[in-house]
Amino acid sequence: MDIQKESQTVDSKFIQQHLANERTYLAWIRTAIAIIGIGFVIVNLHFTLQDKISHTADLVAVFLGGLAFLLGTATILLSSFEYTKKRKSINQQTFKASHNLIMILSSSLVVCLIVMGVLYIIYVINKMY
């Protein structure tokens, strides 16, 4: 019986790093799915729970839902790019931790949350008067 010995790949030298990179990538994908889900929930709740819907409120709900969808899609695209870049840099032993993706996505989420909060406060104030 002839057993072939497989040659060692470059990836196999850095197994832990590659597995950590994959876990991080999957965490970003889960985050993107959650962001997109929040967008759908916003739109769905708005149109389901409102008795009387104003045109402005409809536009705001659709805008926020669309914004969440775009942010989730951007998260998927950027995380895929970062995963591929990190995979290559791990194999070449030139890995440098990047913070650009985290800063871009965190800033975008903060802006999204601020817009949602301000619009909600305006909506509540208008309902009171």
Rank of each mutant, 00 (worst) to 15 (best):
T84E: 12
G39H: 01
T56K: 12
S89C: 09
Q93I: 00
N91P: 01
V115R: 06
L109Y: 11
I35K: 05
D51T: 13
I114L: 15
G37A: 08
T56H: 11
A32K: 00
M128K: 11
V118C: 10
K127Q: 13
F63H: 03
V124P: 00
L105K: 05
K85N: 07
H55Y: 13
L77V: 13
L101K: 06
T56E: 13
I122D: 11
Q16N: 13
S89R: 14
F81D: 10
I42R: 01
G65E: 07
M128I: 15
Q50W: 02
E82L: 13
K86I: 06
F81E: 12
K127S: 11
Y83L: 02
Q17G: 00
H18C: 00
I76F: 10
C112Y: 15
T48F: 01
I76R: 00
N126Y: 02
N21H: 03
K85E: 04
A68D: 03
T56W: 13
R30K: 14
Y123H: 11
V111K: 06
A68F: 05
V110L: 15
L49Q: 09
L49R: 08
K88W: 07
K86D: 05
L101S: 02
F63S: 01
S80W: 02
I90D: 01
M103V: 14
W28A: 05
Q92T: 07
F14Q: 01
S89E: 12
T94P: 06
I35S: 01
L101M: 10
V115S: 09
F69M: 12
C112P: 04
K52N: 12
S12R: 06
I122L: 14
I122C: 10
I76S: 00
G117H: 04
D51G: 08
V110M: 13
G72I: 06
L113H: 07
G72E: 04
A57P: 02
Q16L: 13
W28K: 03
F63N: 01
V60D: 01
F95M: 09
L109D: 08
H55N: 12
T56L: 14
R23M: 05
V43A: 13
L77E: 00
V62E: 08
I53K: 12
S54D: 10
F14Y: 08
N91K: 07
A57Q: 11
G65A: 01
H46M: 15
F81T: 10
A74T: 08
K85M: 00
Q92K: 09
Y120G: 15
F14V: 01
A32I: 04
C112A: 15
L77G: 03
S12I: 00
G117L: 14
K85V: 01
H99E: 12
K127M: 11
R23K: 10
H55P: 08
I35N: 06
K13H: 07
R23D: 06
V41G: 09
G72N: 00
A74Q: 08
I42P: 02
K88F: 06
N126E: 09
E82I: 08
L67F: 14
K85P: 05
T56I: 13
T75V: 04
